[in-house]
Amino acid sequence: MALLDVKNVTKQFGGLKALSDVSMTVEAGEIFGLMGANGAGKTTLFSVIAGHVPPTAGEVHFDGRRITGASPSRICRAGLCRTFQIVRPFGGLTVAENVRVAALYGAGGRQDRAAVARAVDDALEAVGLADRREILASGLTLSGQKRLEIARALATGARLVMLDEVMAGLNPTEIAAMLETLADLRNRRGLTFVIVEHVIGALMTLSDRILVLDHGERIAFGTPDEIGRDAKVAEVYFG
């Protein structure tokens, strides 16, 4: 059974259809890519899945349970967590405190101090922020704050993490490091990722399967190779 099952989701903002009848299934342990131009509906889809906005029609199931209409915090505790394209660190808290909140309240619901400390250490280690743990989150570079977003999502103990453009604004070296981090997390921890990315090269390298959206509609789906050869995609991207 699929870990995440999105069924015929439509989202309408006033007269504007941001998503129309989008379906997708994500299997446990895969990296699932979402592609599309600006305004294609990727972030809206994230928001619908994570519970930030209710869909106009359609359903979302996670791990066999219906999560449509549940609050983001409840969805997170069920094991699905997202990051934000425009980073939202808890600026006045330290890096470690940021991650600690996620460890305390996330899917693990850990109350045991040692387990929380371990989850915080693990998450910081995984994204390479262990040496910055005592500085205020607002003092991190953009790249650092993007890593912090991921560390928080990991610390929640989520099994599925949705990453919204974690590579935008990073330089090539940082992108390479991030790619390595993500592949490593999937291989060693068996995490599942849904990623939205503008950096197409990164998306192609990383993803097992890719869904392409255009103007809120699904226009292509397949392995990176198939997407690379798809005529419709070429038309949208290269005109």
């Binding site: 994570a50 930030h52 915090s73 909140v101 996620a102 996330g106 899917a107 928080r152 610390a155």
Partner: peptide, 20 residues
Amino acid sequence: AGLSAIREDEVAAETVGVPV
């Protein structure tokens, strides 16, 4: 800890599981 996360950013707090 949850309350200070709310003070810093309510949406982010909700996203990492804090029942805001």
